[in-house]
Design a protein around this nucleic acid. Structure first.
Lengths: 150, 150
DNA sequence: ACTGTAATTGATAATCATTTTCATTTAGTG
DNA sequence: CACTAAATGAAAATGATTATCAATTACAGT
């Protein structure tokens, strides 16, 4: 399924959340960006068109979207997470710890593992994180950086 | 390989880091705990025996240990990461988002995927995170919580 | 064992991210 | 159109992490 603003708004309503203009703006900001955005990134982009929307609202909206698994959260080495919509399909991440570049990848299915774990542990599993960290080609060729020194 | 204080100290030296009493204390605190510890947790435990060691030093030590892949970092839903030694072998995590309980699991090998990704992306990959989040059996049976309400 | 030096530390303050509080506003039901 | 619970904005509080810098210390080399 493709997650458009419309789909997401429907998902909010279905779960008893209101579709406010503020939430729509946050959703649109994420949907229109190729990159993963931090809360502050989203705030900055929204703020141009909607000076009234505060950073707090961005945080609150992201919390709701994350609860409904509508956004995918990226835990880079940096000190705050960033977000994209869970589109066009479930994907995982490869992050350069030098420059922060993020490459999405698909094709690794964790369903079977998830089922095994649920069976063995008794957990009801509802999400997962799979991220590889390393050094991208560009940074490898750049001398003098922390990771090139290894 | 089993990571004892001795092994870790050797790894530090081998990489040009000094084995200070402060660092040893941090290592021992992590090694002696079954649980994953946050920087503040570690600080608290150390502080009893070594009142002189500051939280800042804990952060700095963890940074070094993480760089050398001697500790494994856990990104729970909470607002700060926690750490264990990378022993007895590489493992992954299953986290209850209600009570924070962490279950380690092994037996899922990502080497093949890692190699494929390295080949396709040009990254030199040096680490990864694999975490499942959900609701543990105890919390599922507890009525009135956020996740039981679903 | 002694010395020199670069690495490390501790204290403090600064910064950055996130959460709380609460009075006001508003989406969406009926 | 009115009502009500949910959502918002502003400001302050909290919590985590990082920067700065002078003082200390591990350890390599004598």
């Amino acid at each position: 399924m493709k997650l458009t603003e419309k789909t997401i708004v429907a998902a909010l309503r279905r779960n008893g959340y209101k579709a406010t203009p503020q939430r729509r703006a946050v959703i649109r900001a994420i949907a229109n960006s190729i990159d993963h955005l931090t809360p502050a990134d989203i705030y900055d982009r929204i703020h141009l068109d909607h000076p009234g929307i505060g950073l707090v609202t961005v945080y609150r909206t992201l919390e709701v979207l994350a609860t409904l698994n509508l956004v995918c959260e990226l835990h880079t080495g940096t000190n705050c997470p960033s977000y994209t919509l869970s589109i066009p399909q479930h994907h995982h991440h490869l992050v350069c710890s030098d420059c922060g570049k993020v490459v999405d990848f698909t094709g690794h299915n964790l369903t079977e593992l998830e089922e095994r774990l649920a069976r063995e542990s008794g957990f009801r599993i509802n999400n997962h994180i799979l991220e590889f960290t390393g050094c991208c080609r560009t940074c490898q060729e750049m001398p003098g950086t922390a990771s090139a020194a290894r």
